[in-house]
Amino acid sequence: MKKKILIVDDDPRNIFALKLTLKAKGYDVASSLSGQDAIAMLSNDSDIKVVLMDMMMPDMDGYQTMKIIRETEPVSKTVIIAVTAQAMPEDREKCLEAGADAYVTKPINVDILLNTIEKLS
């Protein structure tokens, strides 16, 4: 079994599609509909190696969630890939400054995502 990936997205349809794709590639996949739930899951499951973080969520967005993860031991070093429909150069910088290790845009190019996961984890 490959690495365990946590998908954080407030839209169950996005989770469903991404989960199918990643499972087909042999990854163990967990999912969360909110930043707070994602932080709890990370704290309770040391097998999660990569987080795919939707940046635009209600309540706690991806920026806030990443900041908390980066400040929380022992999960502060978890690989986080920001996933966003925002594709402006300043958005990429904002994601990286907030704690993302990488950045992919929606609609997700699966090859780019898989290469990014393998490169970082």
Rank of each mutant, 00 (worst) to 15 (best):
K2Y: 03
I7V: 10
I7A: 01
D10S: 01
D11I: 12
P12W: 04
R13D: 11
R13F: 06
I15V: 13
F16N: 10
F16D: 10
F16E: 13
F16S: 10
A17G: 09
A17N: 11
L18A: 06
K19Y: 06
T21Q: 08
L22Y: 01
A24H: 10
A24G: 07
A24Y: 06
K25H: 07
G26K: 02
Y27D: 03
D28P: 00
V29R: 00
A30D: 12
S31K: 00
S32G: 01
S32H: 02
L33D: 01
S34K: 04
S34L: 00
Q36L: 13
D37T: 10
D37E: 15
A38Y: 09
I39R: 09
M41D: 11
L42A: 08
K49A: 13
V51P: 02
M53I: 03
D54I: 05
D54S: 04
M55K: 12
M56E: 14
M56Y: 09
M57T: 04
P58T: 07
M60N: 06
M60L: 15
D61C: 06
D61V: 06
G62D: 03
T65W: 03
M66Q: 01
K67Y: 08
I68Y: 04
I68V: 15
I69P: 05
R70T: 05
T72D: 14
E73Y: 14
P74A: 11
V75E: 11
S76E: 12
K77L: 10
T78L: 11
V79G: 11
I81D: 10
I81L: 14
A82T: 07
A82S: 12
T84E: 06
A85H: 05
A85G: 15
A87E: 10
M88K: 14
E90L: 08
D91V: 08
D91W: 07
D91R: 07
K94I: 08
E97G: 06
A98S: 14
A100K: 08
D101I: 09
Y103F: 14
Y103G: 04
V104Y: 00
T105W: 04
K106A: 04
I108A: 03
D111A: 10
D111G: 06
I112A: 05
L113V: 02
L113E: 00
L114M: 12
I117T: 08
K119Y: 13
K119T: 14
S121N: 13
S121M: 10
S121A: 15
